[in-house]
Design a protein around this nucleic acid. Structure first.
Length: 503
RNA sequence: GGGGGUGUAGCUCAGUGGUAGAGCAUCUGCCUUUUAAGCAGGUGGUCGAAGGUUCGAUCCCUUCCACCCUCACCA
């Protein structure tokens, strides 16, 4: 080799930056095409998934069955004229053994140049190596898709959280536990659907684009319809539409809904998130409590085959009846004072003396809520229904049958997380109008999240809505609980991120 | 919005007031039962961005950007 040739070779060997690695893979792509190989063929006849092969390995190996498998090459160990490689499919990974004698020199030459990340299809028989690894003895090998972008470190994987969220597809390739979390998410959703459908609830769909938002207290995302020349809002809740369906004569409806709230983001909040809402005519909030308990037990058991789970250092048991305690009683237990008969000023004084921050508690209900959050909420580890909320903080719930200051409402807490919210729904149109008007006052006083008056909804109530129990729960939080995830971002495939800046 | 942390090669990470290192990936060679294959050799960086201090900054200071944690806010 002359000096000139040597330096040419060194120039050609330069491929350090990402751009150059990609360029090198493109070069291989071109070489494949020159050799008459389509690097992106159309299909592959696959007979077995990895888990199927591993489950029936002994029999398939003994029979000499030819299996046809496909997946992404994640590791490659080349030893001259024979190689091992690990192929991953959705169900797992398996080792393949590619020997020049078996596949032929041309195919082996091609295989030698394939990169980690390429998709392969192989056909072959099964055998166990000297070291005991279940493997595929490949007789036929085809490239199914060329990968141009290198994968993260084969051992350390991808750790950087920003990259994992922004490029979830890479996260999924290299971090198998992420895939497992999302498979569980899917199972949970299936289990919920089975439960409600089996109880005779009709799964329905209601608008995401709404002219007036409502059903929750939150700031909305606003958009514009060009042809109608009108502003629209992405829904913050489905409640008011589902209840219109009860006016219309449906008795048991529910919906899996994506809701959107234009608020802060943290480990429990993503601007777009999944809820289930459900409405049940002729039922009240005690019926809903029984329903929720049954649903949680089914979902937990379907997923874990047991009623006990672990979450963040707690063992949580779904088998016993969920505890029920009213909000003021819960505060009395922990704080030692009883708010139920105090007026606003007295309650506020008592709360302040106990160290509760009541600066923003503008009425009795808000004081009760502040005391509850201060003293009680963090202590609610086992599934607990907190019932009978103050009226001021519950504009869509019916007044309590035994107490005028309270409404028939509960929230379910598990592991300190708020996991469900339900009422005996307010169906008195005049009372509903008064509650909306109180919200409008609050909005005027600067509450950006107060309810807007929805005249059409009030009209619907005037036609008459049966007594109804209603429920809402956050699907993402339930998935967090059941998958041991600390952040909502770990149970949403593509959580909201700030757009990357163009450099 | 407050506080704390992180940002160095494609990935995972060391490191230093005198313009940088490892492992993996990648490239070349050898190797027909390896498995984080091995062995030998090679390439690779505007040390997040912009200012400042300094003879000299990746390191010290300021500001900014992104992400993480946490508190606050928030059905």
């Amino acid at each position: 080799m002359t000096d000139n040739e040597r330096s040419d070779q060194q120039v050609q060997e330069k491929q350090q930056t990402l751009e150059e690695v990609v360029a090198n893979r493109r070069q291989k792509l071109e070489e494949l095409r020159q050799a008459g190989i389509n690097p992106y063929p159309y299909r592959f006849d696959k007979t077995h998934a990895v888990d199927e092969v591993l489950a029936a390995f002994d029999k398939l190996a003994a029979d000499g069955t030819v299996v046809r498998m496909a997946g992404r090459m994640m590791l490659k160990r080349k030893m001259g004229k024979a190689s091992f490689a690990d192929i991953h499919d959705q169900t797992g990974k398996i080792q393949i053994y590619v020997k020049q004698d078996n596949v032929g020199a041309d195919v082996y030459q091609m295989f030698s140049k394939l990169d980690l990340g390429d998709f392969l299809g192989v056909a072959g028989t099964l055998f166990v190596t000297k070291t005991g690894e279940k493997s595929v003895h490949v007789n036929e090998l085809v490239l199914l898709a060329k990968s141009l972008h290198p994968l993260p470190d084969k051992h350390a994987g991808l750790v950087d959280k920003e990259m994992r969220y922004r490029r979830r597809y890479v996260d999924l390739i290299v971090n198998p536990e992420v895939r497992e979390t999302f498979i569980r998410r899917s199972r949970i959703i299936q289990s919920i659907r089975e439960f409600f459908n089996s109880r005779g609830f009709l799964e329905v769909e209601t608008p995401i684009l709404q002219p007036i938002y409502g059903g929750a207290t939150a700031r909305p995302f606003k958009t514009h319809h060009n042809t109608l020349h009108t502003d629209l809002y992405l829904r913050i809740a489905d409640e008011l539409y589902l209840k219109r369906l009860l006016v219309g004569g449906f008795e048991k409806v529910w919906e899996f809904c994506k809701d959107f709230r234009n608020e802060g983001m943290d480990r429990l909040h993503n601007p777009e998130f999944s809820m289930v809402e459900l409405y049940w005519a002729y039922a009240d909030y005690t019926d809903i409590m029984r329903l929720v308990e049954d649903m949680f037990r089914k979902v937990v058991f379907d997923l874990h085959g047991a009623y006990k789970i672990r979450y963040e250092d707690h063992e949580i048991d779904f088998e016993p009846d969920f505890r029920r305690v009213s909000m003021v009683d819960a505060v009395r237990e922990k704080a030692g004072f009883d708010l139920i008969d105090m007026d606003y000023a007295t309650a506020r004084k008592a709360a302040k003396a106990a160290g509760v921050d009541v600066d923003k508690a503008i009425n009795w209900g808000k004081v009760v809520e502040a005391c509850f959050e201060h003293f009680v909420e963090p202590t609610l580890i086992q599934p607990t229904y907190i019932t009978d909320f103050p009226q001021e903080i519950s504009p869509l719930a019916k007044v309590h049958r035994n107490h005028p200051r309270l409404v028939e409402r509960f929230e379910l807490f598990i592991a300190g997380l708020e996991c469900a919210n339900a009422f005996s729904e307010l169906n008195d149109p005049d009372d509903q109008r008064r509650r909306f008007e109180a919200q409008a006052e609050a909005a005027k006083a600067g509450d950006e999240e107060a309810h807007v008056i929805d005249e059409d909804y009030l009209t619907a109530l005037m036609y008459g809505m049966p007594p109804t129990g209603g429920l809402g729960f956050g699907v993402d939080r339930l998935v967090m609980l059941l998958t041991g995830s600390h952040s909502i971002r770990d149970v949403i495939f593509f959580p909201q991120m700030k757009p990357e800046r163009e450099e």
